[in-house]
Design a protein around this nucleic acid. Sequence first.
DNA 1: TTTCGACCTCACGA
DNA 2: ATCGTGAGGTCGA
Length: 419
Amino acid sequence: MALRAAEWCKLPTSLTELCINTTLRCGQSFRWRKSEDDTWTCAMHGRILSLRQDAEALHYRALFPEKQKPALPTPPPSTAAAAAAAAAAGDDDDTLAFLNHYFNLAPNLGQLYEQWAASDANFKRRAPKFTGIRILRQDAWEALIGFICSSNNNISRISGMVHNLCLHYGPLIGHMDGTPYHDFPTPEALCKPRVEEHLRELGFGYRAKYIAKTARIVAEEKGGLPWLHALTNPEYPQFGVEPAPAGELLQGGREGYRRAHDELLALQGVGPKVADCVCLFGLGWLESVPVDTHVWQIAQRDYRFGKGKHSSLTAATYVAIGNLFRKLWGKEAGWAHSVLFTADLKAFAERTVAKTEVKEEEEEVEIKTEGDDVVVETFIKQEITKRKRVKTEPEPDENQHQLVQVSERATRRSKRQRA
DNA sequence: TTTCGACCTCACGA
DNA sequence: ATCGTGAGGTCGA
């Protein structure tokens, strides 16, 4: 399939406002691929998108499938060439607008980080090495299936599964350097007979059934994607839709968020965590806080969960963690939470806090529950934080297949009891 | 309401 | 070398 040629274009931005190398690797999306020359590529929105970033700008290029030749008399060569040039130059090219939408570039990220840091010492301590992380505005259906794949799974395997889904069931957008690029499959495509069996052969395990069933529920019972898209935060709409007010933030999130979360739970393979991922990454409900094993670790280590009433990750504890984070960070709690989540990912371990023993003044938060309300108290911790270097091991970088020295931080912060 | 197993697969450590 | 474990959980009892 021939693709219209395209030029590289520039979208000026700083690495603190957007860092694609972190944003595209932090586990919110599973389809972007990085090549040896640091170019990220993915097929979406009817085109093959390529991205590169340097200190000044995001460089982007879109390759479109050649349009079907109309059954009309062909225009004279000169006119045809001019039309092709115009199309390639951007007359019908909304790539810039799409990128602004997809990367969610309107909010000032520096300000948001400052705001989160001001209300939470732990964020202030961890975030500086993880700037430029943005919550992508992904397609909700893609997010839904992607996160159904995520249960009991790791990012690299999830990516492989999603890749296989596109390869076998997604529409072919075109080829680049001999490689086919497929967009994400529709619900209808995943309703075809024997999908479950096929996905099991492809190594999806028990998720094969979840995907097949969820596709059928969405396509046949719910009437298709409009049902899913109607759950989108109206304040934070899909591409090409005008924003509308979304109501006020309650402890448990806005009403629209709670409704979306509830509706999603009716699907197969969708529990509270996956539903929250879809709300956050696909439906624009940024107060959504998906609590997975990492976040549960963080909640125990840095926010004093794991004791008393919240000694295990029950449904009640799950809600309490979300409520605390919303109280701490406000309407975009899920965004702030994603920064801390990323800071804890093994793939980014080389960036975690210094391994040498450091004397620092730390602030901790004390969580209390009073009735249904969560109370946060912060206080200064003066002790030296002991950091022990446990092991140094080579670990292959998922994308570059190069060995990097990774040392795991094995700190147990002393659990000082409040006097 | 909370608590268990079971569930696919795969890579890693003991 | 085999076995256990954990990886961004969910389901059913």
